[in-house]
Design a protein around this nucleic acid. Structure first.
Lengths: 263, 263
DNA sequence: CGACTAGTTGAGGCCAGTCAATGTTGGTGG
DNA sequence: CCACCAACATTGACTGGCCTCAACTAGTCG
């Protein structure tokens, strides 16, 4: 229904031929994600060098893992088409969703710290991923200051994302968390040129709950409640946001953990 | 009482004189944190270069901020003596403790993402901090591969710390969170040569609660409960861990959000 | 069509939040 | 030195938000 339900993209065939039906040649400088992904703001020459180190652009089936917890770390992964969830693993095997990632996002940074991935990344739909070998990336970054800077920013942004999530999990009540989650999705879809008000949830209720520190029943109930209140419309995984201002108010205006205002 | 209650350190005077009473000259290569801080594993020559970029080693009074939310980002801060807490700031002004940092830790990474600090860092006692100008650090890292690697690891470790905290806040119950917190402190004090079982909490109950997503009353109650159960002894901020195995079991054995076992 | 997974909704209970009163500690100035 | 004050901490009583358990419905895929 919505534009983003499909991942159709404009032509991605490069100008220099050599494209087969089953394996279309993709390059950074012809990729529509140029402005979202790692190479923002680098010049043409640098772009080609970055392109050269992306040796693999792999297809990942829905439900398959880009990498697993404990795998030796070797590369970051940039999502070209599709989406995935990342998870953290507790000592006793408990798993929690740590992130939902879409087109242009980079995942796998948790592997840098200990040379092994700490969690796993699982495709939520058939996806296409650029594999960025980390040692070559690091080496290249030494010569390309803008790339170096971008790489550090990507890491730092993930740190900030984590901090904001801590705030969400530590100080927000269930309905605030869900509102923040929906608004975050809305914004990210808009940034990618999709509808900000109508989109498909690629995560199950359970995954959303895991991500937000809630039970799946709570998520389901809240969505129903939001719908009853005219904030949105839900039909399975399809969500239509009807009242963004009200959602924004719910997401924060009351102040985190503020006194409950009985309306 | 305990060794770690004081921050007394062995002599820090360098060999090359030039030390005044009020401003003792400190250098990376004579700093006792060499093995904990940024320059782990770099050679003598590189160490001198890192040392050269640390233009300031500032003293921060208890309660004073190393940096504030919104300040333009210019430097990372390495804690040489003392400790601090870092916080995240919500849109509506709500503040939550995001980290407790001690000797050798590096703070201020949240500023890299947007060239402004997202939260603030506040000293919990009179402390001494090395200021690491970021642009010079980045520049130097381009020539010193080991430093580059260390810097990235520091960032990545912060990412993993964030992920683990998400897990803690999203999937653990109150007593599990507190047990994890205490064990984390225990381990970090041990790594620094202090007692792993007897230490001073530098955070108030409120700060601990904020960090763990709990109310201060809950923290207080839990500490009392732990004491009643013989797990530890508390007297204000002084904590003596009496039963580490039991604490560890409480921290995870039940499995996060696992079924409550009525003993 | 049956088995399975995902989602919804209801009933009830518990963990932790909230409100409130009291105790304790540490710093400051008379 | 001690009185005083403010910040920090403890404990109790009560409440309520979210979890837990459970039954039922709606799609999906072999």
């Amino acid at each position: 229904m919505s534009a983003l339900a499909s991942n159709a993209r404009p032509s991605i065939a490069g100008p220099q031929g050599s494209l087969s039906l089953h394996h279309i040649k993709v390059h950074c400088h012809t990729c529509s994600l140029r402005e979202l992904c790692l190479p923002v703001g680098v010049d043409q020459d640098a772009l080609q060098q970055i392109d050269a180190l992306v040796t693999e652009r792999i297809h990942v089936k829905k439900g398959a893992a880009l990498y697993r917890a404990g795998d030796p770390f070797s590369a970051l992964h940039a999502i070209r088409v599709g989406s995935c969830k990342t998870t953290v693993l507790g000592e006793q095997g408990h798993e929690q969703v740590a992130g939902y990632h879409m087109t242009g996002d980079i995942v796998g940074m948790d592997g840098i710290a200990s040379d092994r991935y700490a969690g796993q990344a699982v495709a939520l739909e058939d996806s296409e991923v650029c594999v960025l070998p980390y040692d070559r990336l690091e080496e290249l970054a030494r010569h390309l200051a803008p790339l170096h800077r971008n790489l550090d920013k990507v890491l730092a942004t993930e740190i900030v994302r984590g901090h904001n999530l801590m705030l969400l999990l530590g100080s927000f009540r269930a309905e605030e968390r869900l509102a923040v989650f929906l608004l975050d999705l809305s914004q990210r879809y808009r940034e990618r040129g999709y509808s900000a008000t109508e989109f498909m949830l690629r995560l199950t209720r359970e995954d959303i709950g895991s991500y937000l520190g809630l039970q799946l029943e709570t998520v389901s109930r809240l969505l129903s409640r939001f719908q009853a209140g005219g904030l949105l419309q839900v039909q399975g995984r399809l969500v239509k946001l009807l009242d963004l201002p009200a959602l924004k108010q719910m997401a924060g205006d009351s102040g985190a953990r503020g006194p409950i205002v009985h309306a």
